[in-house]
Simulated assay, not measured.
Amino acid sequence: MAATASPLRVLELYSGVGGMHYALKESGVAAEVVAAVDVNTTANQIYRHNFPATPLWSKTIEGVTLDEFDMLECDVVLMSPPCQPFTRIGLQGDVSDNRAKSFLYILDLLPRLNKLPRFILLENVRGFETSSARDVLLTTLRDCGYGFQEFLLSPTSLGIPNSRLRYFLLAKSPPTSFSFPTSSEILERFPESSGPSQPCEVGSDGVTDTPSTENSRDGSVLFKMETAHELQRKRRQDGDETVMKIQDFLEVPEEEMERYLLPPKTLLRYAMLLDIVQPSSRRSVCFTKGYGHYVEGTGSVLQSCLDSELQDVFQSLDLQTEDEKLRRLTGLKLRYFTPREIANLMGFPDHFTFPDVVSVKQRYRVLGNSLNVHVVAQLIRLLVS
């Protein structure tokens, strides 16, 4: 009788709240996380709460020595380095940003390991693919004898109504062992053999989903500062029956509804900038770490009361008195998605929970820094198969 293969030894770098760990479990691959590393105290608190048996190293990546990496003898490295140096709406400091140093440290150590990991999966924001850090990464992988494939993927390609376009890289040794034909191009869909997938639509990262003040072709701007082109795109997304509805991810108790309603001050100041969705919608924009604190570009809000049409509420809203504006907007019962609902959209399982001591603001923040579990789970299957 053939011996059963030992589980793969996995190192989870920048472990956050455990998105990679949950993706690994969902993938069905026989594996064990032998160490997780992160310096964020809140994220580590949540990680320990959900994975008490996993060794969690609360330190910087640079604080892990070459000997410690060698000691782990890991087969797989999963990592999601800080995205701030590469995000298109940030300063784009790239390799000169201090937050990129830990990633460059990993790339420096990789060729010096006694045992190279067989598999590497990296996640980052769209924009990483044009960075100098990516150039260093690819050069290092080639020098170490890895084959690799790059992707730009959003959860919408798996039928999930949330845009979160992200860069992914799968690296494997030996380089010819991928189960699908690799390409030097960055793929924008899963390989056909991996299951249903759709190409990512322009704007699916949530950036161009943000309401704009640009004029449409005929020079008119519709309600809520949306151009005709933007409105048409959103209607097309809502009509895509291959994507689930938002209502499948909602679960706020009625008694907790009030705490998530947008306050009057926010409604009056930011109404024209909100991305509003309904339970029947099949779209929502990317939730960021500023959700619930900042408004513009941080995520969609939900229209809880459907008695009024959005078009009617926003018609000539800027011409109304402050009291009339507030009356109209309050009637929509616009609310934030709860942290649990965002976790649902991001693929975290029901048994993922937060310690009671972690505030709502902290929950939004760590989720905004995390990843979509379902997308990564499918990529892990591709990587290891």
Rank of each mutant, 00 (worst) to 15 (best):
L306T: 07
Q247T: 12
Q237P: 05
F128P: 06
M272V: 11
E150D: 07
F190R: 06
S304R: 11
P55R: 04
S177N: 15
A5S: 12
Y294C: 12
Y146G: 06
N372A: 13
S385N: 10
L72E: 04
D108N: 14
G239L: 05
G127T: 01
V95D: 10
L56T: 08
F103E: 00
F180R: 04
I276T: 00
P181V: 12
L169H: 01
S220M: 12
N215K: 09
R365M: 08
D218N: 11
S179Y: 06
D94Q: 03
S58M: 03
M272P: 09
V17M: 05
S102P: 09
V221T: 14
Y270F: 07
T41A: 14
I106F: 08
N124W: 01
S304A: 13
M1Q: 06
S216E: 07
K325Q: 08
Y105L: 14
T54W: 00
L326F: 05
A271L: 07
D318Y: 02
Y105A: 13
L261I: 11
T140Q: 10
V360R: 10
R233K: 12
K101V: 08
Y22W: 14
V33K: 12
F180W: 02
G63W: 06
S6K: 09
R126D: 15
Q247P: 13
Y260T: 03
S284M: 04
G159E: 06
I89P: 01
F151R: 09
T298M: 08
G195E: 07
P196W: 12
G19R: 00
L165N: 07
S179T: 08
E341R: 06
V64P: 07
F287L: 05
E226W: 05
A23M: 05
L56E: 00
L107V: 06
K245Y: 03
H293I: 15
P339F: 01
H49M: 05
V376H: 10
S197A: 10
N114F: 07
N44S: 12
R327I: 15
A228V: 11
L104M: 09
F348E: 01
A5G: 11
I246P: 01
D312P: 06
Y105H: 11
L122H: 03
Y291A: 05
L187Q: 09
S184E: 10
L262I: 10
Q278I: 10
L379E: 01
A100K: 04
E296C: 12
K115C: 14
Q303R: 07
P349H: 03
L274W: 00
N369Y: 02
P85V: 02
P7R: 04
L332P: 00
G159T: 13
T42A: 11
L261G: 03
P191R: 01
G16E: 00
